[in-house]
Design a protein around this nucleic acid. Structure first.
Lengths: 209, 209
DNA sequence: CCCCTTATTGACACTTCGCCAATAGGGCAT
DNA sequence: ATGCCCTATTGGCGAAGTGTCAATAAGGGG
């Protein structure tokens, strides 16, 4: 693929083009299987430009992950008044719709590359989960909770890990159906909020919070 | 570190030495941060020998992960007769003991667990979970189930993802205590088995199984 | 004691990555 | 329209990592 002529465009536009190519390749083959040369070729750009804009292969990857982790706010918007059960069920249904609609992007989003204990990835996931858990609490009409909010958030983060694993069972392995997920996720989140969390209130010895 | 003299020992022993060094380094710094040269130096061995025994850096890594994923059978051995609640509670307690005892190894083991794109890692996790879920069913006195066994296994796999995430909350972030985990994990697994699973029996449209 | 199997080594070729000076695209002033 | 200058963009260099392979020596058996 010989470059007929050198295109020169605004930094923002170029950044966006590179990000699109990177998201496609990283999503398809994983982190270490994709070289910066591959991304540069896919974006129609010299390899050095990637370092110029993102500094580092890792930072480019972090940017892709950050972009993928954004949860569409439509999931928890305009919920009709009703019981927490009803509202959470609607939330879960919308979420499953979103996942079903862009399955490949979602699957590649929940599978960060073979980076072991990466604090940067951790931070990104944490910030995303922070927003997601707030939406859940809002849907469950539990925004007033202030006492064990830290523990509650931690539990919901753990639950979102189960959500991701269950989604894999549904989309990849086919061992669970969409309806199975709906029932399972709605019931478990309610069980956590209504039964497990109150049972934890008697365990104060959490150092901070 | 100059090699005074060349040591020659049995392939099994040498394999084991390399595996020990690899486990330590991979566990500490992650996959891509550790070079085969580092491992070779730590094992007091020429770099080429790693390829000779394991073929590939990735295969060596898979071997380490496989070794880490082995669940000590003591967790679900010699359970006293009693209700499923009691037996599962004991199981969870023993498991938390194991995790607490070798926290760094456990953390580095579930680090790449978030990996979604790698079919090899997937297979290893799958086999480990296969055994783990059988132990859970045995502890819950539900070995007789044959109807929706596939769905049950899938749900327990999803639950084990929550277990891993909750363990991170406990050991890394400190947002949950050991007692919190005990209550949460025991209750949720019972809730899955007793309430959610029966509610799924009315959803047969799972293609295979 | 020597020899022969084979565990072990060291060097070579190849790929990838980050860096940097050189190059040219295109908006702006004239 | 035209030339200039800013800077987006390129291509190549050196360092680091990885897999392969023929050469080497360790140590047990005859």
């Amino acid at each position: 693929m010989q470059r007929t002529q050198r295109r020169r465009l605004s930094p923002d536009a170029r950044r966006a083009e590179i990000l699109i190519a990177a998201r496609r390749l990283f999503g398809a083959d994983g982190y270490s299987a994709v070289s910066t040369a591959d991304i540069a070729a896919a974006a129609g750009v010299a390899r050095g430009l990637i370092n110029h804009y993102f500094g580092d292969k890792r930072q480019l990857y972090l940017e892709v992950v950050r972009q993928m982790m954004v949860v569409p706010p439509s999931v928890s918007e305009q919920l009709p008044p009703g019981t927490p059960e009803e509202r959470l069920s609607i939330c879960v249904g919308r979420w499953l719709d979103v996942v079903e609609r862009n399955r490949e992007m979602w699957l590649s989003a929940i599978g960060p590359a073979a980076l072991g204990n990466d604090p940067d990835i951790d931070r990104i996931m944490l910030e995303a989960d922070e927003i997601a858990t707030d939406h859940i609490l809002e849907a469950a009409l539990l925004t007033g909770i202030a006492d064990g909010r830290t523990k509650l958030r931690a539990m919901l983060r753990a639950h979102s890990a189960m959500l991701k694993a269950a989604s894999r069972e549904w989309l990849v392995r086919g061992t669970l159906t969409r309806d199975d997920l709906h029932v399972m996720l709605t019931r478990t989140v309610l069980h956590l909020l209504n039964t497990v969390f109150p049972a934890l209130k008697g365990n104060p010895p959490c150092p901070e919070s």
